[in-house]
Design a binder for these strands. Structure first.
Lengths: 344, 344
DNA sequence: CGATCTTGTACTATCGTTTGTACACCGTCG
DNA sequence: CGACGGTGTACAAACGATAGTACAAGATCG
């Protein structure tokens, strides 16, 4: 549009364009949006005149003022542990995209997995009258979810699940099982699991799925070889170091529930004189784009992050329309690369 | 607060708490916020009664309605190429943090470096009456910035700079020079630069700084060894492959203007039988947490991302208060690690 | 040709909050 | 003891948009 008025600070309002077009504010409003069922629609001629005036003056609807009257903010809020986490950022991209398609805007906030921050951020979003929340940092701690439910706030979970709340997640149990199957295939017996933060269902379910399949095959994992820690490179390195300090020969295979942590683990293994892909098999999770491009490409489990975000929005919109959707589990897919394509 | 009313969909309004406290809506408003200069303030007793009622009913101010009257949305908008880029996500964390400290909320949108998306996203934000914009995807294409300036929209740039607009960026020229200095120190002569996207000032200034220092030392870089491409692992791999296809012996040192691209380049070098840190020196940029934890720790230039975001907000707030701040260049810092701690 | 219907327009109230101003009440002082 | 200043409160009008409804003009029918 080649429009735009002068550089005045005041925005063009519906009243301005009504005056310009020589009609009432009502008609202007109905000409531009309106047509709400029983409402009298303006004539085609009037509508055209209004639209022309709107274009000439560079009108744009004040979302806030309209929302006040209609009681619809068309805003969705999302809570994430931190946006600098690639996986959550990608999920948010899916959220933004799908919400936009449905005419909604989104806001997002970092909570750093801190229950107080979660609560505070959610409260701020509700003060802004978001119509629903997408929770990407669900955790058993804090009790926020139960509170939201009691207050009747529409929300869905994404990435992590918890309780019986509707959630859009990857099938982390299945992913864990697939990794176990792959390592059993290659004949490994001594394995370690870097299990992530205990409060996140992602890590714990990937671990549970792995252990389930592993023990079903008659093998065991010593408790000191299932280590928890942060989902980042430094956390993975430390967890790996702790495993290497345990008594007995080192594992021949390691499952890390997060790719960044897996990369940190690579460093620790190298420092211990073990070469990934030759002395030890390594499998990560999430298949971030980086993993395939590493000098030693990392085996990983692809999670459909964008689709997870889109699905979460669809679930939430369903709830907003009065539905009671169930959870959605999206299938993961193991990609075997050089880091684990070997036997013990 | 142990408050919260029932699970009714309607929120508690100022009118409710006024009725509850037995005062007018005016007094309720003034008791809770008010004290605006000449305004008559309610008595301490009334104020206490109102506050008590508000707490009991679980009142929270409707930001939108209030903003409508006061003409202040207390909202800042930020445009980024994509939030799944670690660097921009971290900058946004700084933005969110500093804005929150000043009582502002933020919204963010992905533009994928597409001029049409940039414009559309900015327009949506302005419809939501953001008070100012933080542009993290500035580029000479599209002319959005000039338009915004003409329309009197307050904005600042971050991460990338452009034109004479106020910006909070790292000193990319200095960073590039530092890398060149380091590689000159180690005695390298055959060097390549993976320069990132041509439209981003970050990459082009890092490259320019590097070449400036390099040529000042009497050395040259053949044009076909300065290669542009995306700032991610796959882009870095492809760019590196193109360099390796050029005639002549391979470079003994490579400067990549982005860490993720540098990791992709590592893969390409390995495939070509060159070991980083032994056969070839590699230096990245941004010093993402991963870089120090890689099996071969990557030399990189630390950029103060959080601080960049915070600074951008401070500049914008300054503008909103009528100031005309200049740009801020934050100092980078080279961290030499195993990937480049060697001579040719 | 008058009554009814259709169609298009404008008036008015409203969303929840803030703010200018009118007003009532108190004590104080001349 | 009446006028006056100060103080606290409530009324009413906004902010910009929308929805219900009243009303006027033209079209249609018996």
């Amino acid at each position: 549009m080649p429009t735009t008025s002068g550089g005045s600070p005041r925005r063009v309002t519906l009243r301005d364009i009504a005056r310009e077009a020589g009609v009432s504010v009502t008609s202007a409003s109905r000409a531009l949006h309106g047509v709400t069922g029983s409402a009298r629609a303006p004539s085609a001629e009037t509508a055209a005149r209004v639209r022309e005036a709107a274009a000439r003056l560079g009108y744009s609807r004040d979302q806030l003022a309209g929302g006040l009257r209609t009681r619809r903010s068309r805003l969705l809020g999302m809570l994430v542990p931190r946006l600098s986490d690639y996986v959550l950022a990608t999920i948010y991209e899916g959220v933004e995209e799908e919400a936009g398609r449905a005419g909604y805007r989104t806001v997002v906030a970092n909570t750093h997995d801190d229950p107080d921050e979660q609560r505070a951020r959610a409260e701020v979003m509700l003060d802004h009258r978001v119509e629903g929340l997408i929770i990407g940092d669900a955790s058993p701690r804090g009790g926020l979810l139960a509170d939201l439910e009691r207050r009747g706030v529409p929300f869905v979970l994404v990435s992590r699940r918890g309780g019986a709340f509707p959630a859009a997640t990857g099938d982390d149990l299945a992913g864990g099982r697939a990794v176990a199957g792959h390592l059993l295939d290659r004949g490994h017996e001594r394995v370690a699991v870097l299990a992530g933060e205990a409060y996140a269902s992602t890590g714990s379910e990937r671990t549970a799925g792995f252990l389930e399949r592993w023990t079903a095959a008659g093998r065991t994992v010593p408790p000191d070889r299932v280590v928890h820690g942060p989902f980042d490179a430094a956390g993975g390195r430390r967890a790996m170091e702790r495993v290497l300090e345990t008594p007995g020969p080192p594992p021949t295979a390691v499952f890390v529930v997060n790719d960044f942590a897996a990369i940190g683990a690579m460093g620790a293994l190298r420092d211990a004189g073990l070469q990934v892909g030759r002395d030890v098999a390594l499998v990560g999770y999430n298949d971030v784009p980086l993993s395939a491009e590493l000098p030693i490409p990392l085996s990983s489990v692809t999670t459909p992050n964008l689709e997870m975000g889109r699905t979460a929005v669809r679930l939430l919109l369903d709830i907003l329309e009065g539905g009671r959707p169930g959870s959605v589990l999206l299938p993961p897919r193991l990609r075997v690369r050089a880091s684990s394509d070997l036997g013990p």
